[in-house]
Amino acid sequence: MAPSLVIYGAYGYTGELVAREAAARGLPVVLAGRDSERLARLGRALGRPWRAFPLTDPEALRAGLQDAGAVLHCAGPYVDTWRPMAEACLELRVHYLDLAGEAAVYRALAVMGLHAERAGVMLLSGAGFDVVPTDCLAAHVARRLPGAVRIAIAIDALGRLSRGTARTVMAHAGDADARELNPHQPAARRFDLGSGRLEAVQVPWPERVAVPRSTGIQDVAVYLCASQARRLLLRAVPAVAPLLALPGARALAVRLLSGGAAGPDAEARARGRSRVYAEAVDAAGARAASRLALPEGYAFTAHAAVEIAARALAGYAPPGWHTPASAYGPDLVTALPGVTLEDLPLARPASP
C-alpha cells in the first residue's frame, strides 16, 4: 500500500479546503482530527477514510500516523498544537507539513532541524499563503541580485479571515513574537503592487524567520498594505492584548475579525485576488524588485499545500527543517494555478 497523506484538522475551514483539493488530485488521503462525527461526514462526502485521535494521547497519535508518508497539519493555533505532531512524525519518520503563521513555530522547528535531518524527515512550516508566495518571491529577488543584504516584502491580501485564523491572531496577540518588528527598516512604507502606491505598516510575520533560511539574508522586513483603520488596529493590538483576558473579549474579537462566518464563501474565494511585492537591496544600493498576482489567500493555500504534500509523498522531501523556497526553490510558487510573476527592471544607483 502506498504511504498516505494524513490531513489533521481536515474538517476545519482551511483543512476542508485542503482535503477537498487533495482528494480531487487523487492523493491517498486519510482525514484526521479529534471529532469523529465531523470526520465521518467529510469522509462520506469525499469517499476517503478517516481516523479520530487527539494530540494529547501519544499512543493514539502514533497509531493514527501508521502507514503515513506525510502529515499536513491544519489544526491551529499551531503554537499550541505543532509539538506533539512534529515529535510523533520524527519518531515514525513521517514528513511534517503545516500551515502555521506563527514565527515561534518556525523557530522551534528549526531547533529540531538536525534531528530531522538525521532521521531523513522533512519539517516544513508555512505550506500555504503563509509563507509560500512571500518566501518564494523573496528567494527570487535574492537570486536576481547576488550579494543582496536586505529584503522587504509587502502583502496586499487581508480580506475576511476564517474563524480559525482569527482565533490564532487573538490567542497570541500579546506574545513577544507578535510585537517583534525589524528596527533596521522603516515601521511604515509605501509600495506599488501593480495599481499605484499603497500605504503599508510593518508586521511581525513569520517571513522574518523563513526568508533568512531560504536566502541567507538576515535583514528582512514584512509589510501589510491596509486601510488607515486597519493599520491603526494592527499597531494597537499589543497594547490592548491584556484586555483580551476579560470575559468574552477574545470571542468578541474573533467575531469582529471573521465577520462571524467560518471563512470566505466559494464566491468570495473565486472572486478574490492577492498581491505580493518583494525587493532585494545590496550594499551599493542596487535594487531588484518583483511582484506576484495570486488567487485569494485560502484558495491559494489549498493549491500550495496539496502541491507540497504531493511532492513529499513522491519522495521529493529534503530532510531537515525547511521553508517552501528552501525545499523547492523560488519557482514553486509560479507552478501553482492562477499565479503570475512580474520582474521590475533592476535599479542601480547613479554613478557619482
Rank of each mutant, 00 (worst) to 15 (best):
G338R: 07
D98R: 10
V306W: 00
R348E: 13
I7M: 14
E91W: 10
L246V: 02
A52C: 08
L313F: 04
Y328E: 10
F53R: 14
E180W: 14
L292W: 04
P324A: 11
I155T: 15
S125I: 04
R190F: 06
A312W: 06
A229L: 05
V18I: 15
W82K: 07
A289M: 01
S274Q: 09
H172Y: 15
R287T: 05
G194D: 00
A286S: 15
R143C: 12
V111T: 14
A86S: 09
G147C: 06
G147F: 02
L294C: 03
A236Y: 08
V121G: 02
D35F: 05
E199V: 02
P324Q: 07
T323H: 02
P186Y: 03
A108V: 12
L97E: 05
A127I: 07
R41Q: 13
A239F: 14
E87I: 00
A176N: 08
R231A: 13
S36A: 15
L234D: 00
G69T: 09
Y96M: 07
L123Y: 12
D282S: 11
A314W: 11
A280P: 03
A251C: 08
R271P: 06
R34W: 00
A289K: 06
L256I: 12
A304C: 09
P324H: 04
G15F: 07
C74M: 05
A103E: 15
L137H: 05
A270F: 05
V141P: 09
T81L: 10
A24T: 03
A221Q: 04
W321S: 15
L257R: 01
